[in-house]
Amino acid sequence: MNLPDLQSYRSNFINKGVQLPLPIVAGTENGLLHQLPPPPCGKTGWPWDEQAAPTIYDNRINWPKLTIVTPSYNQAGFLEQTIRAVLLQNYPNLEYIIIDGGSTDQSKQIIEKYAPWLSYYQSEKDNGQSNAINQGFSLSSGRYHAWINSDDYYLKGVFHKVLNKFMSTNADFIYGYGNDYNVVSGKTTTTRVLPFIDYFIKIPSLVQPSTFWSAAIHEPVWEELHCSLDFELWLRLVKGHSRALIKEPLSVANVHEQAKTHSPKMKAQWEADHQKIWAADAHGTVYEWKKIVFLNRIRIRLYKVFGYYS
């Protein structure tokens, strides 16, 4: 497994003239809703004409810096929703970075529309989603990290809940439930997550956009992976570190035919990633994984019997 050196990415940005640390996107007393560009015609509700109440952030608290990275490529139909759902959290100490891979749709124009409220953005060819994520975090100066893909978005008030959880628990990793919104049927389903313990860490169960972690435990994404990059990262990043679960949805994933998680065209790529992950010496054998899968099925049944999912 060859992981990139984020310091080399950081140096490349500095050589291009990027000034570090990046500027902060600070919430205002009345929030950003009426400062941002107006939403597209007909778009209402969160995060279009609603915002998280700025008053939820006690100004007596020194809120830690939160870095959010959005990797983006040709998702103009969803990207504005993603951006607004980050900015309209009105978090008082936000570092927001968008790394777009040189989109050929309207993504660049959308990003530029919100440029005054971004800490940094670029739109140029990169080496895919994993590379974009690593580039983004190489610029980070936040105490806490998360990434949100350009077809997902955060629910209202999530940053307040998550940062309060970090401060009250001193956990290294915070995670929650997630919603899937089917853009064709209009139906929403909720994915509930079991307590994430080390023994079952090899079971893909976390909802990626509902995860946040301390910069102190951050590691690069493995850039050879195209689909299972988040799962493989959790194998390295979460094990042995303290964590806390928020038992409610923190994010929404838009389910559409181009999404990696739901596209039949990506089946072979998922399998290729799977083979790479279990061929990596650090993650054990396929036999061990199958054993854990079997025991996890028993665990899920027990949780259901005792009403965890009720």
Rank of each mutant, 00 (worst) to 15 (best):
L225Q: 02
A244W: 10
H218Y: 07
W213M: 03
S242M: 00
L139D: 04
I203Q: 05
Y154E: 14
Y144R: 01
H145M: 11
M266A: 07
G128E: 07
N131M: 05
S185W: 04
N127R: 15
Q135T: 14
I148W: 07
L250W: 10
I133E: 04
G128V: 06
T189V: 13
N134A: 06
F212D: 02
S141K: 10
D180Y: 15
Q208P: 14
T189D: 12
H218T: 03
P209E: 02
I133L: 09
L225Y: 02
N134M: 06
K247I: 07
I203A: 01
M167V: 14
N179T: 15
S242D: 02
N254W: 04
N134G: 03
T189C: 10
G128Q: 09
A215M: 08
K156M: 15
G240L: 00
Q135E: 12
A216P: 05
G128F: 11
V252N: 10
T191L: 12
V252Y: 06
D230C: 04
N131R: 12
M167Y: 14
V158Q: 06
Y199R: 12
Q258T: 15
S141A: 12
S214Q: 01
G186T: 10
G178N: 09
I246W: 05
Q258M: 14
T169R: 12
E224P: 11
F212R: 00
Q129L: 14
F137C: 01
S242F: 01
I148S: 08
V184I: 13
H241Q: 05
S251Y: 13
L233Q: 02
P204S: 00
I148L: 11
V207N: 08
T190W: 13
R243M: 03
K260A: 11
R243C: 00
G240N: 01
S130T: 14
P220D: 09
P264W: 04
H145G: 08
E232V: 07
S263W: 03
D151Y: 12
D198Q: 04
A253P: 03
W234V: 05
V184P: 03
T190R: 12
S150T: 04
L250K: 08
I246N: 02
H256N: 05
V207Q: 06
T211C: 12
V221D: 07
D152G: 15
Q208D: 06
Y199N: 08
A253G: 10
E224W: 02
G136R: 04
E223R: 03
E248L: 08
G157M: 13
N131V: 06
I217L: 04
V221C: 11
P195C: 03
F173S: 06
L194N: 14
Y144N: 05
T189N: 09
R143H: 12
Y144C: 10
A259H: 08
K156D: 07
A253Q: 15
L250T: 06
K247V: 12
K265L: 11
R143A: 15
Y181G: 07
W213H: 08
F159S: 10
P249C: 09
F231Y: 08
I197Y: 02
